[in-house]
Simulated assay, not measured.
Amino acid sequence: MLSQQELSDRFEIQDLVFRYAELIDTKQIDRLRDDVFTEDAHIDYGVMGGSVGDVDTTLEFLNSALTDALFPNSQHLNANVQIKVDADSATGRVMCFNPMEMVVAGSDNQTYFLGLWYVDEYRRTTRGWRISRREEVKSWVFNTPDFMNL
């Protein structure tokens, strides 16, 4: 049986995962620094063609990639949130279904779909739970534009 503290921790981490998706989809990228990641976080989006590195590298990549001119709409639907808490640290595996609307020159916008997992490490901080490590693991892709090699 889970303790009240562990239940509370798991709910807080789940809210953190959902907060990440909200900030990405509303393009409030810079809020990730204070609301989601630890200062020393390592984020690996490499499997989907993105950046690998620290928080600064990640925010720079996301701010340049997720512009309205390129991606007017996206949704990051998180499900199957699996969390294991161990005192002030935790690990997680989170399913993400990610439709992305992309502006493709010379044609109508194209919507494609990504299926992936986030493999995470979390740490309790003075500001609450934060992601200290996140790695995307590709599951599948559908309808990606021809020039994308995912």
Rank of each mutant, 00 (worst) to 15 (best):
M1P: 11
M1I: 08
Q4K: 10
Q4R: 08
Q5T: 13
E6N: 00
E6L: 00
L7P: 01
L7F: 04
D9V: 00
F11V: 10
F11T: 04
E12T: 06
E12H: 12
D15A: 15
L16C: 07
V17I: 13
V17D: 14
V17S: 05
F18M: 15
F18I: 15
Y20V: 01
Y20N: 06
A21L: 09
A21H: 07
E22R: 15
I24T: 08
D25A: 15
D30M: 07
D30V: 06
R31Q: 15
L32D: 01
R33A: 00
R33D: 01
D35V: 08
F37E: 02
F37P: 00
F37L: 04
D40M: 09
A41E: 00
A41G: 00
H42R: 09
I43N: 00
D44C: 13
Y45I: 08
G46L: 05
V47D: 09
V47Y: 08
V47F: 04
M48R: 13
G50F: 01
G50A: 04
S51E: 05
S51W: 01
S51I: 02
S51D: 05
V52P: 02
V52M: 09
G53E: 02
D54F: 07
V55R: 00
D56Y: 10
T57W: 03
T58W: 01
E60N: 15
F61G: 03
F61A: 07
F61D: 09
N63F: 05
A65T: 03
A65H: 08
L66G: 09
L66S: 12
L66H: 11
A69N: 15
L70E: 10
F71W: 04
F71N: 03
P72I: 10
N73Y: 13
N73E: 14
H76S: 02
A79E: 14
A79R: 07
N80I: 07
N80W: 04
N80M: 14
V81C: 03
V81R: 00
Q82T: 14
Q82F: 14
I83K: 00
K84N: 08
D88T: 10
D88H: 06
A90C: 06
A90E: 01
T91S: 13
T91M: 07
G92C: 02
R93L: 14
R93V: 11
V94M: 08
V94E: 12
M95K: 12
N98R: 04
N98A: 13
N98S: 06
P99F: 01
M100P: 05
M102N: 04
G106K: 07
D108N: 14
N109V: 11
Q110C: 07
Q110Y: 08
Y112F: 10
F113V: 13
L114E: 02
L116C: 14
W117R: 14
V119A: 13
D120E: 08
D120W: 03
E121A: 11
E121I: 13
E121M: 06
R123D: 04
T126F: 03
R130Y: 07
I131Q: 06
I131T: 04
R133T: 13
R134D: 01
R134Y: 00
E136M: 15
V137I: 15
V137P: 09
K138P: 11
K138A: 10
W140I: 12
W140E: 03
D146S: 10
D146Q: 13
F147T: 07
